[in-house]
Simulated scan of single mutants.
Amino acid sequence: MSKRSRTPRRLLMAATTTSVLTLALAACGSGTGSGHSSAMPGMDHGNRPSSTAPADAMASMPGMDTAATGNGLAAARDGYRMTSGTTGLPAGRSADYRFTVTGPDGRPVTDFTVDQTKRMHFYAVRTDLTGFQHLHPTMAQDGTWTAPLAALRPGTWRLYTSFTPATGSGEGKDFVLSRTVKVSGMPMPTALPKASGTTTVDGYTIAVKGDLTAGTAGRLTATVTENGKPVTDLQPYLDTYAHLTAFHQGDLSFAHLHPETKVNGDHGGPTLTFHAEFAQPGNWRLFLQFQTAGKLHTAALTLHVN
């Protein structure tokens, strides 16, 4: 090969290398600035590393490009970060999970807006979408929150915190941040039940209806019956007759469905209406919580979104 023929090839190789490097730097820059994260194990891209960042950073890539849309898969967003020194929890017994929410200035946030009677909502779900828990942690004066988790099964769990800052740059903005934690022991995965419009819990039957399309707002209804008869004595729970949370089977994206049914004393039911919007198609695991006679019930079913 002559010297003249080798020169264009070298220039082409150099241009290709430069293009690849430019794309890589652009991807890294966008992930750091917007709090993008991976889906399942919880990649943690933020402005400052936290105590569990190395474990979170070894996550898989699916879902990374959707973290900034509010699906709860990032530990950081818009300068706000969920930090925790806890990377593992024991199996088979209750345990406290402590965490802090820091603001863009790196300091713990202590001023939150009350949403559905609480300043902080906390959710725990295993990666196979079993073992759902919805808690309301307490905050110490230094901004450390403590969530008293009931006994957990072995495996990887994703822990979500939902809040609205009352001051600062994020004032009035709803945030859902999350981290993962390992629970000791040998995990025994449970297959997700097939999509179904009905489920039962504590003697109550819940029928869910709604023709939903990903990325489009729609309406979903849940009807509660007992022994075939309509239930009309639902009590308010968190300022509503039912609290509905959903998680995507593919990457554990978070969705909170907002109730539209107005509260009228202890006379809720049988049909409840929710404003529903799911970011992506596929199976979603729904957890519907409602209260009767002072007892909280949690019903679970799988919903398919087109």
Rank of each mutant, 00 (worst) to 15 (best):
D105W: 05
Y97V: 13
V114C: 05
G103D: 07
R98K: 11
T100N: 11
D115L: 12
R107D: 07
D111N: 08
T127A: 11
T110K: 10
F99K: 01
H121R: 03
P108D: 13
M120W: 09
K118S: 03
T127H: 12
P108R: 04
F122M: 07
L129A: 04
T102I: 13
P108E: 10
V101Y: 02
T100S: 14
L129M: 06
T110V: 13
Y123I: 12
M120F: 11
T117L: 00
F99Q: 07
P108H: 15
Y123C: 10
V114T: 15
R119H: 11
H121N: 09
A124Y: 00
T113P: 06
V101K: 00
T127G: 12
T100L: 08
P104G: 15
T102S: 14
Y123P: 02
F122G: 03
Q116D: 15
L129S: 08
T102N: 02
R119P: 10
V109Y: 00
Y123N: 12
Q116C: 06
T117N: 06
Q116N: 12
T127C: 06
V101H: 03
D128G: 08
D128H: 04
R107A: 12
M120K: 03
T127N: 13
M120A: 09
V101S: 08
M120V: 10
D128K: 07
